[in-house]
Amino acid sequence: MGAWGIGSFDNDHASDWLLDLIEGEDLAPMRAAIAQVLAEDDYLDSDLAVEALAAIEVLAATLGRPTAAIQDETEFQAWLARLQLQGDPSLVPEALRALERVLAPDSELRELWEETEDYEDWCADVARLRSHVGA
């Protein structure tokens, strides 16, 4: 999986996604990552799930409810301060549905975490993210 921790940015794919985001000037990739997870009817690929978690972290931050994980991303924080982007509260219901999709039985990311001793901690981390975005 290429992960070194349970956090949303504790893996190569999410870190790369975040770097791609901050090379741009808007939140379109955030919206796209959430929408892509919701558009998947079949088995959810882990890369799509990881991108959605990162996107939901970004959404929470742009709504003024950042998690500790996104606060540690100093390049993102500088990018957000420079562009002064505001999140769209109307995306919250979609983000919450995307989190449910990531946690669903037909999610590869969930299956990968289930195979580790950190599964419960990962679920708790996703629940913390949910509380930030849905606050």
Results as ranks from 00 to 15, higher is better:
E108K: 05
R110E: 02
R82N: 05
S46P: 02
A68N: 08
A32K: 11
M1T: 07
V126S: 02
P66D: 02
L96M: 09
L38A: 01
P93D: 01
D118Q: 14
D45L: 13
T116R: 14
S107M: 00
P89Q: 04
L44T: 05
L91H: 02
D125V: 15
T67C: 02
L80T: 10
G2M: 12
R97W: 05
P105F: 07
L19P: 00
A35D: 05
G134K: 07
L129P: 00
V133G: 03
G2P: 00
E120F: 14
L53F: 07
G87Q: 03
A55G: 08
V37M: 05
L80I: 15
D45A: 11
I22A: 05
A135M: 08
T74W: 07
W79Q: 02
S8W: 03
E100H: 09
A81K: 12
T74N: 03
A32D: 04
E115V: 08
D16N: 10
G134T: 10
L129M: 06
A52S: 08
T62H: 03
D118P: 01
P29W: 05
P105Y: 05
L38M: 06
R110Q: 06
L21V: 14
D10H: 10
G2L: 14
A81D: 06
A135N: 06
P66K: 02
A14M: 08
I22V: 15
E114P: 07
G5V: 12
M30N: 00
D118G: 06
D41M: 09
E25K: 13
P105H: 07
Q36W: 06
R82V: 15
D125M: 13
A78M: 13
W17C: 00
A68M: 10
P89F: 06
A60Q: 04
G87D: 03
A32L: 10
E40H: 06
V92I: 15
P89S: 06
E25W: 11
A32Q: 10
C123A: 13
I22F: 08
D12A: 13
G24R: 11
Q71A: 12
E111L: 15
E120K: 15
L53K: 02
V50C: 02
A98N: 04
L21A: 05
R65G: 03
L96Q: 08
L48I: 14
Q86R: 09
W122A: 09
A95K: 00
A69Q: 07
T67M: 02
A61N: 07
A33H: 00
T62P: 01
L99K: 01
L83A: 03
L59T: 11
V92S: 01
D12Q: 11
T116Q: 10
W113F: 13
G134W: 06
L109T: 01
S131L: 12
D88M: 12
D16H: 10
A60P: 01
W79G: 01
P89T: 13
S90P: 01
W4K: 06
E117L: 14
E120C: 05
D118Y: 13
Y119P: 00
E57S: 03
D106N: 12
S131M: 09
D20M: 11
R97M: 07
T74P: 00
R128W: 03
G64D: 04
A28T: 14
V37R: 02
P105T: 15
A32S: 04
E23A: 15
A127Y: 05
V50Q: 03
A95C: 04
G2W: 12
L21W: 06
A135L: 08
I34N: 00
R130K: 12
G5Y: 04
L63G: 08
H132A: 14
Q36Y: 05
T67H: 00
